[in-house]
Amino acid sequence: MTTATTTVRRGEVTIRDLSKSFTLNGRRLDVLRGIHLDVASGEALAIVGPSGCGKTTLLRVLAGLEEPDRGEVMIDGAPVHGIGRQRAVIFQEPRLLPWLTVTQNVSFGLEVRGQDRASAAEKARHYIRLVGLAGFEDAYPRQLSGGMAQRVGIARALTVQPEILLLDEPLGALDAMTKLTMQEELARIWREEGVTMILVTHDLEEAIFLADRVLVMSKSGHPPRPIEIDVPRPRDRSAPSFVALRRRLMAEFGLH
């Protein structure tokens, strides 16, 4: 379902001199300092870094949930402030509305954006099939497993057909096996939908498996370095180039 409108810039993200600080117990905490970053249309970028280095903060600024102190976020060349229709966010928790069925949850984003119920449900069903949940349309969230619930959240984000998908540790709460399957699914969905994907993760292997580039953030405030992942797709986790990259990334973290 790659959209036909191949305008040159779709889902292109430019970050210029972005800074953000918080005040915590009266002390100023500089979380993001002068970040520069360009994400190409349709690119998959993974963001890794130690806990508390500001990954979630960066993603929330990109989502429009936080305003930066300084600097700018541009999408397709235009500066953005606040929440916008080009972006959809997938959180670590599925954040499903427990009183709605799977279909109703997946339609939620479209309905909020003013689409009528019938056509929203129609589209929702398409994406429910895409994430492999056909047959569970009428189930309630409490009847789903963690992995299934997360898929519903992913389907809900895809249904609004965003240019940019922002994911904050979307598979962090899943068990190892489900995680592997979901990584394959994310790779497939990203390929089929042609969206720009910015993914925060703790899992280096996940970052190498999914991303075109991996941005390594640090707590010290050094400007983050993007690392190219030039491993051919579909990626094989045991291929020598994959293993070599993983070793290199671990070294970045000081883990030998």
């Binding site: 429009g64 959809a88 966010v89 609004v160």
Partner: peptide, 21 residues
Amino acid sequence: RKLVEMARTYGATRATIFRRV
């Protein structure tokens, strides 16, 4: 609050958030 925030990321207005969440 996380559900409210979720609704907000889809551009829901205050009234919609009240009615639907």
